[in-house]
Amino acid sequence: MWKYEKKLEYPVKIKNPNPNLAKLVTSQFGGPHGELGASLRYLSQRFAMPYKEVKAILTDIGTEELAHMEIVNSIIHQLTKNLTEKEIEASSLAPYFMDHTVGIYPVDANGVPFSAMQFASTGDPIADLTEDLAAEQKARLTYDNILRFADDPDVIDPIRFLREREIVHFQRFGEALRIVQDNLNSKNFYAFNPAFDKTSSQRRDNMWDMSNRTD
């Protein structure tokens, strides 16, 4: 279960609204590399994970991503506070405003709603962790792209924090993938799926078990 703590992981205190920047930052809530997909990805994948260290890292990074979603949403909320109708109409946020006013809703930078198709949970530890490594890099590059357009230090500061966390998570997932591989046959990591097959001989299609190959 989870317990809510009435605090942000990193402070957000934005003085000046900016609807155009808010529309871009929204992608890190509901977009393809956003924090909603990140948290759902890791918190879903952990059920198929056989190894204790990796169950722990998926749980704890998945939980931290929920805190990052809260930071991103706080940034969007504060960037859209106290705007006038004229300011909204003149900004790129006007189409979003039609359906959501300045409420928080998971969409990407083009306004396309969040979809579970944006992440994978394959039931295969190697495939899942390889996806997770890519996901952290994609989140990192999106924060890099936000930083290209952000000129408000109140926004740049928490975005930099979130960007750095992607790099740390990438490191931890690299170690997690190594832990998975250390538990498998070093001659063939793909001989069987440790989240499903009991042993390599139980896999019906044994053609990929190359442990007996001589070449």
Partner: peptide, 14 residues
Amino acid sequence: DFALIDTVLYLDTH
């Protein structure tokens, strides 16, 4: 708490 969160992630894999 941030220092603690970061240390927990390290301890998960070590």
